[in-house]
């Protein structure tokens, strides 16, 4: 038990921004790990991933052949479904639920700026999401490893890294939603809506566009870069065994035309998806304050 004499520093000097952000992050991380959504999502992610790995490992009949196959496709698909939902809802809940509980004003009455609070929460939730991704994909990797599946170590590392980037982007978007909505339920609803749009809406719309407007392949590729999920998917395929060309003519065009710079292009797109919503959230939040 701590019974030391308190060491208080002169209060005219509040802690450095980084320190404040770190402490809020630690608090948020601990909170997040304790919550139901984190446990549920982690379990769901791990369970689905294990399912995918088991099924595809047995599907190859234990032949031990390696290559891009259903395991990677299944895992990418899983990440596309689960990670954005998880990150969006975590982000959406972060500020809005505090506001609803009346905690936001109390937190901001401390020597903490709104931007620090926002970034701290972002960092904490990001680490929680990282833990979730590592656990889920790690278990999958163990199954793939022991059962002799179709993924090598670097593919899994890439997949985990890119999933994390996607999670960051979606987390930032979620926090933006959280900042602009007043009630937690509205924020969560909006997050789910955005998720639906990103997961199904944009792709289906683009497919319809391809069929009806006869989009040229370069237009199709450029348009597909708008959706962070597509970017994640293409980047994963490009990074894992560089088999982006699996995706047909538009992807083949991308490989032929952009080749080496594809990593940079995808990286830029995802970075924009991380930075833009987060920056906007910071600006709005510090302008808007508690009200």
């Amino acid at each position: 038990m701590q019974t030391t004499v308190s060491l208080t520093s002169p209060l005219s000097r509040p802690p450095h921004t980084l320190v404040t952000v770190a402490w809020i992050g630690v608090r948020e991380l601990k909170d997040a790990i304790g919550t139901r959504w984190f446990t549920l999502y982690t379990l769901a992610f791990a369970a689905l991933g294990l399912g995918v790995s088991f099924v595809s490992a047995s599907g190859s009949g234990g032949s031990g052949l390696s290559g891009f196959g259903r395991t990677s496709a299944g895992l990418i698909n899983l990440v596309l479904l689960v990670v954005p939902l998880m990150a969006l809802s975590a982000g959406a809940a972060s500020i809005a639920s505090d506001r609803e509980r009346g905690m936001l004003a109390y937190l901001l009455a401390q020597p903490v700026t709104p931007v620090e609070l926002l970034l701290g929460k972002f960092v904490g939730l990001a680490v929680a999401l990282l833990a979730c991704i590592l656990l889920g994909l790690g278990l999958c990797a163990m199954v793939v490893g022991f059962k002799g599946g179709a993924l090598n170590a670097s593919s899994i590392a890439w997949l985990a890294g890119l999933s994390f980037l996607l999670a960051l982007g979606m987390l930032g978007t979620g926090m933006l939603i959280s900042v602009v909505t007043r009630r937690a339920s509205v924020a969560t609803g909006t997050a789910v809506f955005i998720w639906l749009v990103l997961v199904f809406g944009t792709d289906l719309a683009l497919m319809a566009g391809t069929l009806t407007f006869r989009l040229r392949i370069e237009e199709l590729f450029a348009l597909s870069l708008i959706n962070p999920l597509q970017v994640f998917k293409m980047w994963s395929l490009h990074a894992i065994d560089s088999t982006l060309d699996v995706l047909g003519p538009a992807a083949l065009y991308a490989v032929e035309e952009h080749g080496e710079s594809l990593h940079a292009i995808f990286g830029l797109c995802l970075s924009a998806w991380i930075l833009a919503p987060l920056t906007l959230a910071c600006v709005l939040f510090s302008r808007k304050g508690v009200s």
Binding site: Q2, T4, S6, L7, S9, L11, R13, P14, P111
Partner: peptide, 11 residues
């Protein structure tokens, strides 16, 4: 911690 106190005398 948010007030920059490294070791708080909680008791």
């Amino acid at each position: 911690r948010l007030r920059g106190i490294r070791r708080t005398d909680i008791d």
